[in-house]
Structure formats: structure tokens, C-alpha cells
Design a binder for these strands. Sequence first.
DNA 1: ACCTGAACACCGTTCAAGT
DNA 2: ACCTGAACACCGTTCAAGT
Lengths: 223, 223
Amino acid sequence: MRTPASVDKRQAVTPGRIVTEALRLTREEGLENWTLRRLASAVGAYPAVVYHHVGDRETVVAAVIESVVAEVALPDERLPWRTWFEELLGGLRPVLRAAPGVARRLALHGPGVPSALAIIEGGVRVLRSAGFGDESVVVYELLLNQACLFVAFEDDRGLSPGIRERSAELFSSYRDSETQPGLAAMGRYVAEADPAEFFDYAIARTLDGVAARLTDRPVSTPA
Amino acid sequence: MRTPASVDKRQAVTPGRIVTEALRLTREEGLENWTLRRLASAVGAYPAVVYHHVGDRETVVAAVIESVVAEVALPDERLPWRTWFEELLGGLRPVLRAAPGVARRLALHGPGVPSALAIIEGGVRVLRSAGFGDESVVVYELLLNQACLFVAFEDDRGLSPGIRERSAELFSSYRDSETQPGLAAMGRYVAEADPAEFFDYAIARTLDGVAARLTDRPVSTPA
DNA sequence: ACCTGAACACCGTTCAAGT
DNA sequence: ACCTGAACACCGTTCAAGT
């Protein structure tokens, strides 16, 4: 009401506002590129206030991941398993890309977040119905980890171009090598590769490999 | 007048000794878990000495990655392509596991290191000979990234059990759920999964998916 | 050329004290 | 209950000064 202009805090500091701001910072500069101190000052508060309302940095990060994963749409469970996963992973990509760094966390540390449970439940059930039996869980993990890794790859290109540029230059210098045709091909590839195409290719090959498990051998009916 | 950490300085501080020590620290506690200051005091020197002889932290890290990748054995190029990659990736795993954190860097930032060149050259050439044509480079990247990701996964379990434990507990609580059979299967899986088996399974499925590219359609013979 | 020792500009986290 | 303001124990990096 009569708060001085210099201390103008637009709204009260709440857990929700802190997480929303953390999400905004993540979308702008990536999950690992904001600090708890900067988050605090973005909501006009002291670091200790973040601790009071939410917790340490890791807790804030978990909340950000949670709210990103919650945006992922679950395909219709009556779809064929392969289509189901193509839709899931195709939809996952833009959601994760919009919050750089989240894919990396999911790929490396697993989905330790409540809203992932519905996706797991759906995915594993779809695979079991398709006849993957006891392999359903591994197949699920393979597909999801794969997808998250390649999104993390793309994030990386966008966020920390420094490290990648070094290797891109390294490879490009072999573009026209005749004695090293493999490196030459790699050099031409890194110059013009479309990460989105690589994503689709990787997912398609893994789905192929996994699909062969159903046709190669009799379907194992779980106990 | 004392040297920092009062370490005996029998040996002179050299770039080689710094990198060797960094490698030792990496093997013991992981690539991201030592600091440049601790590295400096481990060789009995001031931080500025590391800068003088090697460079910033990122340069030291690159040197560590280089020396780890240099240990990877290249299979005989006359092997069938699939066997060649099974041997390469099977050999890659223990080398990377011994230096936790290196796999993660390779998976996320690519192999920006000189000793990776021979592996790339060999791998892409093997695939081209096998008839993968222009897809050879993507196939190579898919297989190597895949392998590095799953090693990074294992590293993570070993090094930072904190984050993983949270999700393991989360899943385990659904072990006996009857309404959520997918989560129940996941809960049973995380309790007893062998990461080495997962690694082999993932590689095998990806190789299957990739192999199908050769049999599905006519082999394109590049000029 | 190589090392010293301090400084700079940050971190995440904790805590007694205020209101 | 919530916020203040300072402190603690670190970082990576830089730099003038010594030898």
C-alpha cells in the first residue's frame, strides 16, 4: 500500500512465484546457467527467502523439471505402440527444447519427478500390451533416454557453442582429406547436419531395432 | 615460505605432471568433482601455476579426456561391421567407466579431442565398406553417442547417488501397485537392474535397427 | 621463465537478528 | 512466519611483484 518505490515488489514472494521465475530463467538461459542468487534477486528477495519458501537449489531445479515434464502430452493409448511412441517423443522434443537443460537432467539422472509417472505408466503399459513382456521396462527406458539424450545434444549446440565449435572446426579441417575418407565424411556432415533430422533418424532406428524383438521370436507371455 | 599444502616438491611442476594428477583425481572422484584449486595443491603448486603450464580448467579437462580416449583400442578393420562395433563399444565401456564423467562429456559435447579422430575414421570407414553409404556418419554418431550415454548413466549411479536415490524410492513405492502395472514393473526393475546388461541390450537393439537399413533396401554403393 | 600471494567477482548455504 | 544482512567456506581467474 504505502511501500516505497525503491522497494517496489510487485507481488508477495511465494513458492509459486519463485518456481515460475526459475522456469522463466531456465527458458531464457538454461537450467544450469542461472544461480540461486540471481533467481532471488529476480523475484526481489534475498537468497535466504528462496530457502525459506522452496529450499536449496536442487529443490528449485526439481520443481522446474516437474513443471516442464507436466507439459508433455500423452498420446491416445489405443494407438499402435510404435505410433504411440512416435507421437510421445515427437511431442517431447519441443517441450524439452523450450527449457534447455531439462533434457540433460532427464537423460543423465532419470525422471525423478511426479509428473513423469503418468508417462511411464502409459508407456510401459502400451509396450506390455504390444507383447514386449518383461522387456517392456528396458525398451521404455531405452526409447526415453535416447530421446532425451538427443534433445540434450541440441540444447548444447544452442547454449554453449564454445566447446562444440572447437570440435566442429577440428572435423571441418578434414572435409577434403582423401587419405581419411571417414573423417572427410564426418567433416562434411557436421557442417550441414540438421539436429532435428538426426533426432528422427535415431528414434526411427531404435524403434526398428526394438520392433524386431516382436517379430524375431515368439511373444513371451509374462507370468 | 611454505609451499601450499606442504607437499614435497621432489619433482618439478610440468604440464605432464599436472595432467597426470588431474587424471588421477578424475579416476578417483570424477571429472566434475575436483576443482582447479585442489588440483593445484595436489601437485604442490598455486592455482596460477596450473594456468601458466596448462591453462584454464577447461583446457585441463580437455587434456584428461584426450588421454582417456587415447586408451580405447581399435578393433581389427577386417572384422564384420557389427562385430567391429561390438568390440569397440564393449572395450569403450571399461575405459570410460574408469574415468567417471568423461563419457558424459563425450555424449553431450561430442568427441572434440585428437585421439578420437582415429576411432571416427575407423568407424565411418567400416560402415561405408559395409554399405551404409551416406548414412555411415549418422549411424556412427548414433552408436557412439548411445554407448557414451549409457556409460554416463552408470557413472552417475556411482558418483551422485543422491539424486538417483530419490527417483529409485519413488518408483519402488509402486512395486506392488495393481492399478498401475506399468509403474509396478518399473519399480521391480529399478530395484534389481544390472546397468551392464542394460548397456548390452541398448547397443544390441540399436545395432539391430541399424542393420535393418542394409537388408531392407538395395545397398547404395557410393562412387 | 616460473612462482608467489593476494585480489576480484562470484557461488551455495547458514544463521542470528529483526519485524 | 517471513525477511534482513552478514558471514562462512568455497569457486575460477587474473595480476603485479618477486626470483
